[in-house]
């Protein structure tokens, strides 16, 4: 039996065969073109302070507007700024490249999941989801 430390800090004892199969799959996925590209573009985005600031400001402003926390002139100013931010985000190369790379990586993972699911006879990914995880 081999141990793998899982994300939630638990260790799971997989059989040696399963451990090897999971390790091989994880390594293959990690070194796939789509995941490598996403990893590179994501790293580039994370290092771009200006881009991160734009995303955070847009997110905060969006939450504020949706929550109805601003009214009248303040709301108008918030919406104008939000529009500006959306334009800046659309023209930021690092954000756009990361978004495209993520979409490609997600489509790739869906293809892999489809292959696994066909062999299992049920949707594998749906069984991997932890309650409350993801979006």
């Amino acid at each position: 039996m081999d141990k793998i430390m899982t994300k939630n800090g638990k260790t799971n004892r997989f059989s040696p065969e399963l451990f090897a199969a999971i390790s091989d799959l994880a390594e293959s996925l990690e070194h796939s073109e789509a995941v490598l590209d996403f990893s590179e573009k994501n790293q580039r985005l994370v290092s771009d302070q200006n881009a991160i600031q734009l995303i955070n400001e847009a997110r905060e402003l969006q939450n504020k507007v949706y929550a109805g926390d601003s009214i009248g002139a303040e709301l108008e100013a918030d919406l104008t700024r939000l529009h500006e931010l959306q334009n800046l985000i659309s023209s930021n190369a690092n954000i756009q490249e990361q978004t495209t790379a993520q979409e490609t990586a997600v489509a790739f993972l869906q293809e892999i999941n489809q292959e696994i699911s066909q062999l299992l006879g049920f949707d594998f990914a749906s069984l991997t989801r932890r309650p409350g995880a993801g979006c």
């Binding site: 995941v35 994501n42 990914a125 995880a133």
Partner: peptide, 10 residues
């Protein structure tokens, strides 16, 4: 390994 939530992405 992939840096994306496998279950949610699929």
């Amino acid at each position: 390994a992939v840096g994306l939530d496998f279950g949610s992405s699929c």
